[in-house]
Design a binder for these strands. Structure first.
Length: 229
DNA sequence: TCATTAAATTGTT
DNA sequence: AACAATTTAATGA
């Protein structure tokens, strides 16, 4: 019997860019120690202030990293499409998780225990390179996000959020077309669904994306990333 | 294969 | 927030 959830998780690790560079023994360690679970819509994947003892990957579905300062009022920091891994920051520093991760819809997540993560860190150069590239990329995006929230209007924010979602380095598994509803775009950007709808139509008129029922196709990722008006 | 229905998504106010 | 229109998926004739 093949568990569909488990095979989705397996597919994630085996299609991750660092997988192919691992030695056979390291690959089997990953497979043996990884855990796969399904989280329902609005379900908590990671809680704020919890002890970080695992590296987490999104195998299917969609999630967001959010910081809930006080009740309910949360700011989305980043979207997490299938193929993305996160949590290495808190894992490396052995600190409590700074942010929470919430599933925007039914989502399959893979967790790799800290022991395995540390082993790869100690024994695989390619794995280290992957982490360096990912952390560096995140830093750049984060700085851009801070600017965006202050300076740009709704269109710019949607454009920024989308260009992050489709970032080939952080989300290798994302194809040009991503299945995401406009209400989910609203949740990611902190906009109402109605405003997200308007913004998306503007971006479509600008020729940057194509809007279809239940999905968005990015036509020009570079222009989308620097959209300002 | 086609018709009907419910649910999800979208466009507009 | 509310409403109508559209798309999709599921069901059964």
């Amino acid at each position: 019997m093949t568990n569909p959830i488990l095979s989705t998780g397996l597919q994630l690790v085996q299609t991750s860019t660092w997988w192919g560079a691992l030695a056979a023994s390291q690959q089997s360690l990953v497979v043996e120690t990884m855990r796969v679970k399904q989280v329902e819509t609005d379900g908590v994947i990671c809680q704020k202030n919890e002890v970080v003892d695992a590296w987490v990957g999104i195998a299917s579905g969609l999630a967001k990293i959010a910081s809930s300062s006080f009740e309910g009022k949360g700011v989305t920091l980043s979207g997490l499409p299938p193929g993305s891994w996160f949590g290495e920051g808190s894992l490396l520093k052995s600190e409590l998780r700074r942010y929470e991760v919430i599933a925007l819809r039914q989502t399959v997540v893979v967790t790799l225990p800290k022991s395995t993560f540390d082993h790869l860190l100690d024994h695989s150069i390619p794995f280290n390179r992957f982490l360096l590239a990912q952390i560096n990329e995140r830093l750049g995006l984060f700085i851009g996000t801070v600017e965006t929230d202050r300076l740009l209007g709704p269109e710019g924010r949607v454009a920024r959020a989308l260009s992050q979602l489709f970032n080939p380095l952080l989300s290798p598994g994302v194809k040009p077309t991503l299945e995401i509803s406009q209400s989910e775009v609203g949740l990611l950007t902190g906009l109402s669904r109605q405003r997200a709808n308007q913004a998306l139509q503007t971006l479509e008129k600008a020729g940057l994306v194509r809007i279809e029922y239940g999905s968005i196709t990015v036509l020009n990722l570079q222009e989308l990333g620097r959209f300002e008006g």
